[in-house]
């Protein structure tokens, strides 16, 4: 049980993909302009993460490893992720057209969100079991959502700040993210690294 707790804590805070590992920056910067779309994006990524981690896990240990095709890992994993995102695209379009419209192109771009591929690979290299893979994916997804929501909250205010033209938009968002990352580093110290 304590193992799951530590996986959860590290995914959420001390090893937060966006803040500590700087992965998944494109959606982090692209969809963090409004709180609602930030939340939708975070949950969509979490959903893909969980499915992708579990499917990749099963495929790796029950198909690739027995057939000694481990070197195909990258190709197989990315294809699985692409298919899952396509499925999500179809389902969302049907179930929640409003959310679908607000996510726009970033929904399809979950395929190229490096958090997903990194997590699927990480599950294998860390040697998690299938339950660990599941908890890890949930934790990473929630950590991503947390970072996205924090950023969206700040950016809604940043928009109204008077800034020099060359700093507006992405540069100030990146510098803000840097300061947020400092705060996350502080929390890492709190939990003993």
């Amino acid at each position: 049980m304590s193992m799951f707790f530590s996986i959860l804590l590290s995914g959420l805070i001390t090893d937060n993909m966006v803040m500590m590992r700087t992965l998944g920056i494109c959606p982090f910067l692209g969809v963090s302009k409004k709180l609602e779309s930030g939340l939708g994006m975070g949950l969509a990524v979490t959903f893909v993460l969980v499915l992708a981690s579990v499917v990749c896990y099963v495929l790796y240990y029950y198909v690739l490893a027995p057939l000694s095709l481990v070197y195909l890992q990258t190709i197989v994993f990315i294809l699985i992720i692409a298919v899952l995102v396509q499925v999500l695209d179809i389902v969302l379009k049907k179930l929640s057209p409003a959310l679908y419209a607000s996510l726009g192109v970033y929904l399809a771009l979950i395929t190229t969100n490096c958090v997903v591929l990194f997590t699927a690979n990480n599950v294998i290299s860390q040697g998690f079991n299938i339950l660990g893979a599941f908890v890890n994916a949930v934790a990473v997804g929630l950590g991503f959502t947390l970072a996205l929501l924090l950023m969206a909250g700040i950016r809604e205010r940043l928009d109204r700040a008077a800034l020099p033209k060359s700093v507006q938009g992405l540069p100030i968002a990146l510098i803000t993210a840097g300061i947020m990352a400092l705060a996350f580093m502080g929390l890492k110290g709190l939990f003993g690294g």
Partner: peptide
């Protein structure tokens, strides 16, 4: 660390 990376990239 990541924090420094964000800040330098922004600048």
């Amino acid at each position: 660390q990541s924090a420094g990376g964000f800040i330098i990239f922004g600048i």
